[in-house]
Simulated scan of single mutants.
Amino acid sequence: MGRTKNVFVGIAVILMLVAAGLIISYNNPKAKYEIYQDHRELFAAVKDETELLMTSLDNRSDIGNTFIYSNNGNAVGHQFLDGANADLQDKVGQIIAVSEDKLNFLRYSRQDGKSLLRFVFDWEGENGNTYHIVYCDSQDLVEKAYNEEPANYKLDQLADGWYGIEIK
């Protein structure tokens, strides 16, 4: 009887450790950024298409936040900025698909002549904290933009000019 009890206790401990590991990895922001690591070329292509679009629409040195793509839960569904061509819409659609429909917004702004492109995932925090994948030539500009937000964040550098931002 003691041996059987030890086996069941051992199995219960192993199951609890596995469950804890799954929970930790599920909410691990590094795991969220795997979408960028696995699809870097796609994110870069969206960045390039977006910069071309914004250059053609407005030549001012500074542009406030412009929503290139929005899925804010309305019955209308996915909405793109007027002028977003089929290639850009297709590439954003691919990111939506590989993110399992977690991409909520694609926002563009330009400050001091530098582009800031934000891919905003899981806006409602249904799967953990909201996270952003951001492109900008200047980490200082990224930090400045997020310091102006009314939320705490954690910044991780993903690649040259690319950042992961977890909103807490």
Rank of each mutant, 00 (worst) to 15 (best):
N27F: 15
N6L: 15
W123Q: 15
S138N: 08
W162R: 00
D87V: 12
A97Q: 12
D137G: 11
Y36V: 10
C136R: 00
N71H: 06
L103P: 10
Q94N: 05
I165Y: 05
A86Y: 11
D160A: 12
A151Y: 14
E143D: 15
E149K: 13
A97L: 12
K47P: 01
D122T: 05
S61K: 14
K168G: 07
F43M: 03
I24R: 10
F121Q: 09
L52V: 07
S109T: 06
N129I: 01
V134M: 03
E34N: 15
L15I: 13
H39C: 02
L116Y: 13
K102L: 15
I11T: 13
S70Y: 06
D112S: 14
N72G: 15
A75R: 08
V18F: 14
G83P: 10
K168E: 12
G83W: 10
Q89I: 07
A159R: 01
A20E: 06
G164L: 03
G128P: 07
N65Q: 08
Y36A: 10
P150K: 09
V76Q: 11
I24V: 13
M1V: 14
K30T: 07
K5H: 00
T50C: 11
M54V: 04
G113R: 05
M54Y: 11
D101T: 13
W162P: 00
S25G: 06
I133M: 02
S70G: 06
V134A: 02
G125D: 03
I23R: 10
V7M: 09
I24S: 09
Q89N: 12
D90G: 13
K32S: 11
I68N: 03
N129Q: 08
I24G: 04
S109D: 05
A151V: 14
V9G: 03
F8G: 09
D112V: 00
V142T: 05
E49M: 04
Q89D: 05
V142K: 01
N74F: 14
Q79W: 06
V13K: 09
Y33N: 01
D90R: 11
G161K: 08
D137S: 10
M54E: 10
V46I: 15
V18D: 07
M1Y: 08
L15W: 12
K32G: 04
K154Y: 04
G2S: 09
A19Q: 12
E126F: 14
N65K: 09
S70A: 14
D140G: 08
K144F: 00
A97D: 13
K91H: 11
E126I: 06
I95F: 06
N27Q: 08
D90N: 14
S56Y: 03
R40I: 05
N65M: 05
S138F: 00
G93Q: 04
E166D: 04
R118H: 03
S138T: 02
S61H: 10
A45I: 04
T130R: 15
N28D: 15
G73E: 10
T4L: 15
Y108H: 12
G128D: 12
Y146D: 00
V98M: 04
N74H: 11
G128Y: 10
A45P: 02
H39L: 01
Y108L: 13
E143I: 05
Y131H: 14
K144Y: 00
A97W: 04
L53W: 03
L81S: 01
T4C: 01
